[in-house]
Design a binder for these strands. Structure first.
Lengths: 233, 233
DNA sequence: GCAAAAGTGTTTGGATTACACCCATGC
DNA sequence: GCATGGGTGTAATCCAAACACTTTTGC
């Protein structure tokens, strides 16, 4: 994290940081973007990207900055998760960290290894190694919050490609809730979610190609206004 | 808040605090315990009780300390809500505040006006005045989180008296979700919540007295373990 | 034709809803 | 007896689960 570019003692006895968990979805798995720490402490361990918050910077703005440095992406909605502040969570001083998460379409950009990371990688939440600091704990609680929101807000469409098959959609929920759903019943459940059915079909599959759909966000917002439908999974 | 007992400039350029929202339930309304500020800024305005976090203190521990100073109560579960950190939210410096909430039985204790408050009062969430700082915003988001948890965890029993009538139970949800429920249907919905039915009845009512119930927490925890029931409202 | 996954229809049982009715108490 | 809320039963409806079946593509 960039705090080590600055003389640590110059900062003060306690500091705030943001940790910015980027969730993505590919190959049927929800993944988080992790960085390999290039310096002490926890050198060479994988960690959640994060940085100190500047004195006159809003929390969300700091999280967006971390996201931008890693991905070049802008205008992504940040969701606040939780705040972690055990006095000894950081070996070199008191650092209270506010964790945020964002949902990305993995295919839509290229990750840039930043100055403060030796390597960057998407890691499946099914297969998480030991992370630096208390980052396993932070990631686990944030994933719980993601799962809660997946049930109550149409944020799954921030993870899915802009055009997706209904099966990809179903598999996202199957991964998150660790259970298989019946295909016919799943389609009945999502019947009222406003989707746009395209004429376009899946390519290069060796079976009947599936129809592609997109989320009709405009219509969803309208239905929110007149209370005709609220997302619920 | 106690930060003003300390010379302000000695503290820092930025600081952390906890705000500790105490929710209670009486007379059919969910209320928050507010304090009347005895000093600048926002003197004489109502505010959420809060305090700075000591350098080697855990966040939750700080919130428990604020609760204890106000109520003398201990061993109350604190729920972390959200963190607020707009650079200008505090007129005298950068203060990032982590908000917690706790659920109390209003009848079980006496509020002590503490050194940093001129007055203390339970205020209904239906009838909230303008508060100090960004406390209206903090309270509103925290109330949203409370309502979310009321749907997924049996925390309503932390607000209700130890022995309650089914109607008090129903009215709590009616207040929170701002809608009336059918009595017979409500009772069918809660059929599987493990309750202890007492022989004791309501006293001093001028109609048929209602039976009193308590939450059977032991049995609920057992049913969680063997996955036979999970709370859902 | 066969394998593989897309896509749809039917049946069933349990939950939700609306609504009606009886019961116990104070006055 | 009457007002007031406590407490319960029933029928209609909706919804979710289980499961079977048809369709379309590549090879």
């Amino acid at each position: 994290m960039s705090m080590y570019r600055i003389n640590f003692n110059d900062f003060f006895t306690s500091a705030f940081s943001v940790d910015c968990i980027l969730f993505g979805y590919s190959e049927g798995e929800i993944k988080a973007l992790l960085i390999k720490r290039a310096m002490q402490p926890f050198e060479n361990l994988w960690a959640i990207p994060g940085d100190l918050i500047y004195p006159d910077e809003d929390l969300e703005q700091a999280a967006e900055r971390v996201l931008f440095e890693l991905t070049g992406l802008n205008n992504i909605k940040m969701h606040q998760s939780q705040t972690f502040g055990k006095p000894n969570r950081h070996p070199q001083g008191r650092v209270i960290t506010i964790s945020y998460f964002a949902l990305l379409r993995i295919e839509d950009f290229e990750v840039k290894a930043s100055s403060w990371a030796g390597d960057v990688q998407w890691v499946s939440l099914k297969n998480m190694p030991d992370l630096a600091f208390d980052h396993n704990h932070i990631l686990a609680s944030t994933y719980e919050m993601l799962k809660l929101k997946l049930q109550n807000e149409p944020i799954c469409f921030d993870l899915l490609p802009e055009r997706f098959t209904l099966n990809e959609f179903q598999q996202l929920y199957e991964f998150a809730f660790e259970q298989a759903f019946d295909k016919a019943n799943f389609r009945k459940k999502i019947k009222y979610i406003p989707l746009i059915a395209h004429d376009e079909k899946q390519q290069n599959v060796k079976h009947r190609p599936a129809k592609l759909f997109s989320f009709n966000r405009e219509q969803y917002l309208l239905s929110l206004e007149n209370n005709s439908y609220t997302f619920k999974m």
